[in-house]
């Protein structure tokens, strides 16, 4: 990374509580444009909560989050501006079951970006081509397999032409056979230079694609490392233990 580039995401000392439970305990990190960061850690460690604070699906209660130069506050205009810059892919796909694949993808470009319908549909077909399911455009999500649904969800997020993509355990709800087709799409995205934050348990994917690995435990960043460093010589005892558990089975 050259010095001329500014970080696209700056997170400083972010805290969040659920009732009395201290879910995020002072998270600080920076992400450069084009960087692919994989976030891993045991369940309940706050990693999903953390990436959901970046597009404010969760509110942080202390600290600063600055995305693309915009500080996240309660100001509704700021939130809307940031959300249209950030695409998100969920564990449960969260496609809209009452709309066709094409409508799922074109809804936000038409109503948020104010694209003409024809233009939005052109983009949608391009993206469906990119995720390799152009023939499913007029089906409903319920008629697709899990892997196809998740690829539609990726296309839907990309249709807003975001600068940043957040992936919240995108393959955790998939049958093993379908994980590969989703990871292939994500690999291709990573190569295209999109900034990506990925919460995942797919360590093979992390090792191959990530520029950096961030290890969460109990609401804190325990270790930040390169993929090689993290998998071959983890610096912390907790990370060693986690890797031993996750790689042994």
């Amino acid at each position: 990374m050259t010095k001329a580039k500014e970080p696209i995401i700056i997170v400083r000392d972010v805290h969040k509580w659920y009732g009395d439970f201290h879910a995020l305990r002072g998270i600080s990190m920076e992400v450069m444009p084009g960087e692919v960061v994989v976030i891993c850690g045991p369940s309940g460690s706050g990693k999903s909560t953390f990436i959901r604070t970046i597009n404010r699906l969760e509110e942080h209660e202390r600290g600063d989050i600055i995305v693309d130069g915009i500080r996240l506050t309660n100001d509704v205009r700021n939130i809307a501006a940031i959300r249209s810059e950030i695409g998100m892919v969920f564990q449960q796909f969260n496609l809209f079951p009452h709309l066709t694949v094409l409508q799922n993808i074109t809804l936000a470009p038409i109503w948020v970006r104010k694209y003409p319908r024809r233009e939005a549909e052109r983009i949608a077909f391009e993206l469906l081509e990119r995720v390799k399911i152009p023939e499913q455009a007029h089906k409903y999500p319920g008629q697709l397999s899990g892997g196809q649904q998740q690829r539609v969800a990726i296309a839907r997020a990309l249709a807003m032409q975001p600068k940043i993509m957040l992936f919240d355990e995108p393959t955790s709800a998939l049958d093993p056979e379908m994980i590969k087709e989703v990871l292939d799409v994500m690999r291709e995205l990573a190569r295209s230079g999109l900034t990506m934050l990925v919460v995942t348990h797919e360590m093979g994917f992390a090792r191959e694609v990530a520029d950096r690995i961030v290890f969460f435990d109990k609401g804190e960043i325990v270790e930040e490392n390169t993929p090689e460093g993290f998998f071959q010589a983890p610096k912390t005892e907790r990370a060693k233990q986690f890797l031993a558990n996750i790689l042994s089975h």
Binding site: N55, L57, R83, Q92, N94, L95, F96, H98, L107, V112
Partner: peptide
């Protein structure tokens, strides 16, 4: 309606009114 529906609508940048009209209310 699963909460994920509203979250997906928000994450796409739909306003609360749009999310209600297009996503949650029809379902």
């Amino acid at each position: 309606i699963p909460p994920g529906q509203l979250e997906a609508a928000k994450a796409l940048g739909l306003s609360p009114v749009q999310a209600t009209l297009f996503i949650t209310l029809p379902q």
